[in-house]
Design a protein around this nucleic acid. Structure first.
Lengths: 266, 266
DNA sequence: CGACTGTTTGATGAAATTCAAGCACAGTGG
DNA sequence: CCACTGTGCTTGAATTTCATCAAACAGTCG
């Protein structure tokens, strides 16, 4: 199989997106170009790799979605990230030459492999490839820090709202509706990821629906009032001047955080 | 491989550690070898770089300590990391080609510069250098995730205890006493980093002192009962079998998390 | 000395968890 | 077709942790 395996279809040559693929999704384009890609299909509940597995390759999500988690010593799960088409996976393995995460698919998904040899060659010989890998890994850390900051400084309702808006943004970047979200993860996963009880997630979703901010039908969520949702995220619980800050600027910064290289690639 | 650089002098030629330099501190040795290093001294409160500054170099802490922080939209600080001798700084800049953090020194400190050109050359031409940079950056992300996990699953007392034990481990790895800690950061910094109120930090330290776990004298902390402190971190707030888990295994895992390459370098 | 930052301690309150119970939906098998 | 079972989700009531507010104290430095 080669890089041309998507060419003949209406889907994007490199990242299997149906449209709106004029910019790099998570900076993986150079890798995809340089490498001979092989891909494989997984189903809901399958694991791509587990903590402790040998670190042999990096992966790129082509379609579907997945979660990465670690296990605490008490053997309970902590979800650290969700992955969507175009995302690069597996860089957790560089630290110990073993994978540190479990990656589990949330639905039927397809994934490309890039062998470590290929990654090495790319990083050694391609300036762009090097930049993209380092940029993506740096960004991973920044995103985790952002997440940490959210837990420290935002209330539950703000975190959940932020989560929905982030998801909306990600899906929009991949050519899907920014208002109609189909959650591929359970409430348990969301609660785990955001560090709250499932009951809290459930209560907050109900409350948001009652306020007319969203419409909830099982895993289908419709965002009815995104400007107001943005305000909720920005409002300092302690200050009276809720929503006074520049929402557009905030949205732009968020966007820049997820797609840092768009400026350099266009 | 690179462990012989401590041989000839009482102070380490490369990382300014007085002793116990038989293993790589945070995997920066290859970088230090390849480069012609220049270093500079900073004082308490000085900044190495700020968010938005041009990304021109990476840095290695030689002595002293520093904190990295980001600013929220409400303009309050969130500390994301503390740095000690041997630590690599500045990889936050890869994401946007601008620094994302503010790095501020907590005491008089010295720092080495590695220009981006030098970093590029190293990564392109040295297999070991490449591994070390990628490993360090991967580890940064894993550590942030660990931190996130701690916030989600541990109580305040557990997080603070964990913080002290981690600090102890770091200092011990750098040849200092693992029992006698001199905090270079304020209570405010600690509270900010751990996501709690200063008052909580203060109360918990007092409480731990009353239980005979530690002795507190301003910034001087003495760890009096580290095994018990480990138990506190491990005990699930909900289970009755506190401290039943394998403390040694836990300590080893923690250690492995901070020093991933020690196994590959010895 | 007084102004300052950094820290401690107490009283109160709010946010979110835990415990407990029940509902909705999908798949299975009689 | 309908009970039966399991998973995922919702809702209510009581509890707990921790933050906030308020005040006072301890060292430091100009």
């Amino acid at each position: 199989m080669s890089t041309s395996h998507c060419k003949s279809s209406p889907t994007c040559e490199y990242c299997a997106l149906s449209r709106n693929c004029t910019e790099n999704i998570n900076s993986t384009s150079a890798m995809q170009k340089v490498q001979v890609l092989t891909h494989k299909i997984y189903h809901k509940g399958d694991t791509l790799f587990c903590a402790g597995n040998a670190f042999n390759a990096l992966y790129i999500m082509r379609s579907g979605s997945a979660k990465a988690s670690t296990m605490t010593f008490e053997a309970d799960e902590q979800i650290v990230d969700f992955y969507f088409p175009g995302d690069l996976l597996g860089t957790d393995g560089f630290a110990h030459k073993l994978h540190a995460h479990n990656v589990t698919f949330l639905e039927t998904s397809s994934v490309c492999y890039i062998s470590l040899n290929a990654v090495n060659a790319l990083v050694a010989h391609s300036e762009v490839g090097r930049q993209q890998l380092l940029s993506t890994m740096s960004l991973n850390t920044l995103n985790q820090q952002q997440q940490l900051m959210n837990v420290h400084s935002m209330t539950s309702i703000q975190r959940l709202t932020r989560f929905l808006l982030d998801l909306s943004l990600k899906l929009a970047k991949r050519g899907l509706s920014s208002q109609q979200l189909t959650l591929s993860m359970t409430r348990i996963d969301i609660a785990n990821y955001l560090g709250m009880a499932i009951e809290t997630v459930s209560r907050l979703l109900t409350s948001m629906q009652q306020q007319g901010l969203i419409h909830v039908q099982r895993r289908q969520i419709t965002l009815l009032n995104m400007p107001e949702m943005n305000k909720i995220c920005l409002s300092d619980p302690f200050s009276q001047t809720a929503g006074e800050y520049d929402v557009m600027q905030h949205a732009m910064l968020r966007s820049a955080t997820e797609y840092p290289l768009s400026g350099t690639n266009m």
